[in-house]
């Protein structure tokens, strides 16, 4: 049971004891003033390279948590998103990508949106890249305020999905649902890390499930990831299996732990394990296999 479940349960106990009409004691949650110490903004880099694609990169700035985005730091500006969120974009960051050949590709500051992924980016390369397993890329991002982020990423090997399948439950009405299984074979010689995402419809939409998996318990064996009964008849489900490196896996875990700790009194907060140095963020190469099924 997670912390919210725990809080819900204990409140249910409280509610059960308060049937006599004492429930009007007011809310158990309230907004408070928290005087946080000063926080120095850091450069945040997010870059996922893929073979055959023009590299794109997002450079933003971290901000004090309770900052309400009224003003941007000098050299940066605020990007207002459609949902009201704002992101602080530094406009003075020069980014270089060092290819496996040793050649440097300068990435221009041209904020835009990637039509394929639906993602925003701030910097874009000049040509598609070639990424083969074992090759190393390097990143260098530097602004005019002395902040300097560097990182390297090695191309993982390709791990194919062996099979995908689904099965509906016995219901015949609107509660008819299917589980979905994705199966692949883990190589025995290496310690491997995976990210498996299932999407309904276009992969650019929110994923239905998103799991980070390491092979500690099934090294060298076939492995199957099974969902709950959650998909409806005629759903199109796309399974995307990424074979990732340990740095990206750690980054993902630390992001998850950090997000879970905000609001979970039982969780120990975690620092962010960035794959880059000098700032916060991730620089990695994605290698994936995809399979799609229409559930009938």
């Amino acid at each position: 049971m997670d912390s919210l479940g725990f809080v819900r349960l204990t409140r249910a106990l409280g509610a059960a004891t308060l049937l006599g009409g004492l429930a009007g004691c007011g809310s158990l949650q309230k907004d408070i003033d928290v005087p946080l110490p000063a926080y120095a903004n850091e450069l945040v880099v997010e870059c996922y390279l893929e073979n055959g694609r023009v590299p794109r990169l997002t450079v933003t700035e971290s901000v004090p948590y309770l900052d309400n985005s009224q003003a941007a730091a000098a050299g940066s500006y605020l990007l207002k998103l459609s949902n009201g969120q704002s992101v602080q974009l530094p406009a003075d960051v020069a980014v270089k990508l060092v290819l496996p050949s040793g050649r440097t590709m300068n990435m221009a500051f041209k904020p835009g949106m990637d039509e394929t992924t639906g993602k925003y980016y701030t910097h874009i390369g000049t040509a598609p890249i070639t990424a083969r397993a074992g090759q190393q890329f390097a990143l260098d991002a530097q602004d005019q305020r002395g902040r300097h982020v560097t990182g390297t990423a090695v191309v993982p090997t390709f791990i194919p999905i062996d099979s995908v399948k689904y099965k509906f439950n016995a219901e015949s009405d609107t509660s008819r649902r299917a589980y979905f299984m994705t199966k692949w074979t883990d190589p025995a010689a290496t310690t491997d890390y995976y990210r498996l995402m299932l999407h309904k419809g276009r992969p650019s939409n929110n994923s239905e499930t998103d799991n980070d998996i390491r092979d500690r318990l099934f090294n060298g064996q076939p492995y199957a990831q099974v969902t709950r009964y959650r998909f409806r008849p005629n759903d199109t489900v796309t399974a995307t299996l990424y074979h990732v490196d340990s740095l990206y896996f750690d980054f993902r875990q630390s992001v998850r732990n950090a997000r879970n700790a905000n609001g979970n009194p039982f969780s120990q907060p975690s620092g962010i394990h960035s794959t880059v140095q000098g700032g916060v963020g991730v620089f990695t190469v994605l290698v994936k296999d995809q399979k799609r099924l229409i559930l009938r």
């Binding site: 946080l36 110490p37 926080y39 997002t58 992101v87 993602k119 925003y120 994923s207 975690s270 916060v280």
Partner: peptide
Amino acid sequence: TTLPLGRFALQDIYQGGIQAVPIYPDR
């Protein structure tokens, strides 16, 4: 207790809404 000092925006691989990720200081 430990409260986050900062946050950053993470888009992830696909655009599924930008997540605010907390940055925690010392414990």
